[in-house]
């Protein structure tokens, strides 16, 4: 299986990198852009019991991939090679 994990700054947590990126987009003429937030996108191959994969991924996010103080996460699991 392939898992895709998205980690993003929590609402309310300052994201200066997102803000700087937004400014750069504005200076390029993309003035319609608001609320740019930068996060991480993690992909991984996961083996094992498909019924347990959700709970396992949740553990991975809570224990390592995201810092619950400042970040939110969500993930998707699919067949490898299927978009």
């Amino acid at each position: 299986m392939q898992a895709k994990v998205y980690v993003t700054p929590k609402a309310g947590v300052l994201d200066p990198a997102g803000k700087a990126t937004q400014k750069a987009l504005h200076s390029l003429g993309f003035e319609e852009v608001r609320d740019v937030r930068l996060g991480r996108y993690i992909t991984m191959e996961v083996e094992g019991d498909p019924t347990e994969v959700t709970a396992r991924l949740d553990d991975m996010c809570r224990q390592l991939l995201a810092n619950g103080v400042i970040e939110d996460y969500r993930f998707e699991v699919g067949e490898t090679g299927v978009e």
Partner: peptide, 11 residues
């Protein structure tokens, strides 16, 4: 310790 340390506001 509580809290977290993130990127400087100035970048």
């Amino acid at each position: 310790l509580p809290g977290a340390l993130v990127r400087n506001q100035s970048l």
